[in-house]
Design a binder for these strands. Structure first.
Lengths: 338, 338
DNA sequence: CTGTTAGCGCATTCAG
DNA sequence: CTGAATGCGCTAACAG
């Protein structure tokens, strides 16, 4: 591959001039500028990132560590983050912790070695040694959708309380009293916040405060199904079920169908935190809180760039919307904007 | 941050010895080895990736460019690829082309600048200038699930013909004659292969060869819905619909419901290439070809590492399986392995 | 087995 | 505005 030296030689200028033109750092004459540019184009010159990073002691790379790239929430978020970063001249190194602490450590090592300029993190659990090393090395960090004890970094995430409020109001409008709540782990801030908002708001919305209707899984389908079964095993019969995230709702539905049969399950209304594309097809259709993953990703990158630039950055809660599908007719095709 | 020089000084050895210990390149005495390692640990030393890359002229980074990270197929694939790469000491730089040629070009530039050691590519369209530059620079490349004219690289992808065969056999078993086929773009090898396999196999499986039953979209929901409507507008009434990928099936269902009503739509059986998690919840449940994205990702990385290591690598078609949900009872929870 | 030395490609001094 | 020289952190010769 051509180096900047080759470009300089072909343009008949010094290495320094070529560098100045190509990185636009300082003024150059129109003449040499043109010569360098055309030489670079002719040679197909592409700057050597590692060399440049070594010299400038910055990489223009952001690390994005998500807890599970296969979740639609994070893939949407990653997509938006990457786009925002690209607009600011940054590359995103996307990595997956796969809900596994060891893997998260390995990824953080790789990030450290790559000398990323900043980190977007969806934390797994407590602060690990590697993470605290990164923090104390002064690496700018923002958190995504989850907080973590002992790490004070701006957090960009869903407005959980607002989302739950949507659900509570909807449940009240629909006249539900016996509502089952299938939550997520208390150890995750997301799980804790949604649960608290729900428990605190129940009474005011005419919903039973009987805790037999409340249980929690692990935010995955299997664990949620088990939680749903535990609720049913207590002998209570909800008229509506609220799943605290997308996979939880999936598991809850499976459990209802298995235990009560498809027929009886169909008479229970489902409402979910996180909107999934297939909710419209289930009968009855599932209403849901729409979680704006893209906005979170974009805001997270902006905040991180602020930090990198030495500016202030403060946490943001991104508003949710609510998709009410109760008694809805199928959407018209082609009626959307495009 | 501590450099290797600091480590060497603290361990009381030369820079070279420290390097040898830390990169394990050559034999060192037990004594100096211990001293270097504990010095490194004490200082929290992390090798400077860019400097190392500059010197070794390799980065241990693989680029993975997918056409849409938000599709479950690719996020699953990416996950598996990353894991496999990590086991071999490589980091994966995951990027998203978002089905957009310009963005793909931008990503390829970033990859070129980073000096990735190899590229896993899910091509968008024809070979772009940037891509051909990378190819001619000798960058090892493998293709994922799609081929592209004028680029001879090993391809790791779905066995489309085998998958379609599963569907044809199922359709025959179910006694369907009037089957609608909603395909994808002919310009994508995936679309072309599935279509050809279907058209060629129809007659032998007792399915109508009336081309009024066949149309194609863009592998996205909206385009597929329009294709489905075109089929219905020709006045034919299928008893089954075959969607050529996940989003296509989604769009086709929407169209059926809109045009025929939920009631009549329910009497049409749906079968899909790509299995989505919600197919079990639709009534009637949707049977589908399961596309092993993880196996493709793993095989792709292995092939790429072979190429990088100077070994041969040859294309592989990963077998599909078929999930028959016709007349299925809901799955039992907790009955799975875990 | 170990130390000295050179140089990967680039941006940035410092003189001119 | 330009060129010559320096060094970022590291590994790979080469000598000892």
């Amino acid at each position: 591959m051509a180096t900047i030296k080759d470009v300089a030689a072909r343009a008949g200028v010094s290495l320094a001039t070529a560098s100045r033109v190509l990185s636009g750092s300082s003024q150059t004459s129109e003449d040499s500028r043109g010569r360098v540019l055309s030489a670079a184009a002719a040679l197909g010159y592409v700057a050597h990132g590692p060399a440049r990073s070594l010299r400038r002691s910055r990489t223009d790379v952001l690390g994005l560590l998500v807890s599970d790239i296969r979740s639609p929430f994070f893939s949407e978020l990653a997509h938006a983050a990457e786009e925002e970063a690209r607009h600011h001249g940054y590359t995103v190194l996307l990595a997956n912790a796969n809900e596994d602490t060891d893997q998260a450590e390995a990824v953080l090592s790789a990030f450290a070695s790559q000398r990323i300029d900043g980190l977007l993190l969806s934390p797994q659990g407590p602060v690990s040694p590697r993470l605290s090393a990164l923090v104390s090395s002064g690496l700018p960090i923002v958190l995504l959708n989850r907080t973590v004890e002992g790490l004070s970094a701006p957090m960009y995430g869903t407005d959980n309380a607002g989302g739950v409020r949507h659900v509570l109001e909807w449940l009240q409008r629909r006249g539900h009293r016996d509502v089952a709540y299938v939550g997520g782990p208390e150890t995750m801030s997301t799980g804790a916040e949604r649960r608290t908002a729900y428990l605190d708001g129940r009474a005011a919305h005419g919903i039973t405060t009987d805790d037999a209707f409340v249980d929690a899984g692990d935010f995955l389908a299997e664990g949620a199904a088990e939680a749903m079964l535990r609720i049913l095993d207590r002998g209570v019969r909800p008229t509506a079920v609220f799943g605290a995230n997308g996979r939880t709702t999936l598991g809850a539905i499976r459990a209802l169908r298995e235990r009560l049969g498809a027929e009886a399950a169909r008479r229970i209304e489902i409402v979910s935190f996180d909107d999934l594309e297939w909710f419209e097809f289930v009968s009855p259709p599932i209403s849901a809180v729409r979680n704006d993953a893209a906005a979170i990703g974009t805001a997270g990158v902006r905040g991180l760039l602020d930090l990198i630039g030495g500016r202030e950055a403060s946490s943001e809660r991104v508003a949710t919307s609510f998709v009410d599908r109760a008694g809805e007719a199928p959407a018209r095709i082609g009626a959307s904007a495009r």
